[in-house]
Design a binder for these strands. Sequence first.
RNA 1: GGCAACGUGGCCGAGCGGUUAGGCGAGGGACUGCAAAUCCCUUUUACGGCGGUUCAAAUCCGCCCGUUGCCUCCA
Length: 479
Amino acid sequence: MSLKIYNTLTSRLEEFVPIDPPKVSIYTCGVTVYDDSHVGHARSLIVFDCLRRYLEHLGYRVLFVRNFTDIDDKIINRSKEENTHFMNISNRYIASYYQDMEELNIKPADVEPRVSEHIPEIISVIQKLIDLDYAYEANGDVYFKVRKFNSYGKLSCKDPEELQAGARIEPSENKKDPLDFALWKSAKAGEPSFDSPWGPGRPGWHTECVAMIFKHLGESIDIHGGGLDLTFPHHENEIAQAEAITNKPFARYWVHNGLVTVNGQKMSKSLGNFITIKEVLSKYDPDVLRLLVLFTHYRSPLDFSWDKMEESKRAYRRIKDAIEGLSQLRALEKTKDQEVGLLQLLEKTRQDFFSALSEDFNTPEALGAIFNLVSAMNKVKTESIQRGNISENTLKEYSECVNFLEKTLRGVFGLFEKQGKERQLSQREELGFIELLISARESARSSKDYKTADLIRDGLRSLGIALEDTPLGTRWQRV
RNA sequence: GGCAACGUGGCCGAGCGGUUAGGCGAGGGACUGCAAAUCCCUUUUACGGCGGUUCAAAUCCGCCCGUUGCCUCCA
């Protein structure tokens, strides 16, 4: 199946055709590691994780690179505050980031380069730009000549003339032109620095990605992604540097995810309205956040709220219930009746699901198809349980639906992957106690001692274990 | 100020020329000892405003109003 994807560079939907199929190279801008990551980062990570999984599902061989910015002003400030080496700060938050990634079930990138480990490559890019007269050195700084690159602004639809007019750039004495941006920043006294032909300093923000892409993926890549807020100036500046050197398109498809907002305003450190991934995961299953992200088209803004997490949690349970219904149905008496036609709907669901994804990775529409199937499955489930039996054919069809859900949602959306692990992690004793309490309650119920029964149910509920009495016995699950 | 998006039913959120999106919530019913979960029914002209194009517009065009993002570090 073909994929159409919105390309920021052309401002339109385009057929996805990689440079060298079946290989697909993807680079996304990672985080600056000076603090814990927040929900905005999580969205970007989840979106590109799913896009990558989808491309792999389509049969592409994806090479995925995501960087760490482990040296910059904010990291330096933080290290000053704590009076420690900047690497201690970046290492700490890289560890924190990996912990979040693991919990969120984000597939690791194939290469996860760090700026501090790519200084020679970065210097080489800068040197090339100087040699080509696209950059100049001034008092230990190096700047890129924006006006010399004549397609500057093509990604973000900006006109250099208008940029200058509205720019709020502080007067920077070393720049020949206020539009120019720093490729290398000379170190101030006491700042960590790296040696360079222009003296001690550190890379500007934009060169790292160019140097890393050149090194790990080549001069032209298929997809370059990141948050919408990176379009300008970051990605625009990457294009300027890379294409000034190679004279080739830097990336074929520029893919940007919409931002996460809180009460309509962008979630950001500076506004202080951010919610860390850790905070969310302390309250919710990581899958619930994943589902919330997928419930909004990746290019639209996503307004985060705890109410939405609750909604997402309920929706998530609905799918889970349909999947887990299989084991309940298996326990029923089998008959030889005719089938119910779930297979037809399954086929339609499969088609709708993938055709939604092929149209600009429309995950909300794809989920719509999933929920249509889920409803039909629950209907079959309810009727069968109430009737007390199920035909072998129906069971087989239901089982195929579960198969599809598990395989697709796991493979493409990365959902339901942690279930097994979670079970392993649970203590045996804990499970034993729960089962024991359930049988004690069963015994109370059969002697109509509902007071005791409810005491046990309410007690477990307050410990996060919900009980459900079904005609097939009592089920429990964590809430 | 410049540039770019966006405004859909109680809320969220797809659709982007004609045919049920979907989720959450609310009300009623079935099931239950009571619940929970699930199912059934209801939530009867949803598409910011005003014009225009068309046999037909939420969907295309124009203007207006409102919200947001970028122009400074930011996923």
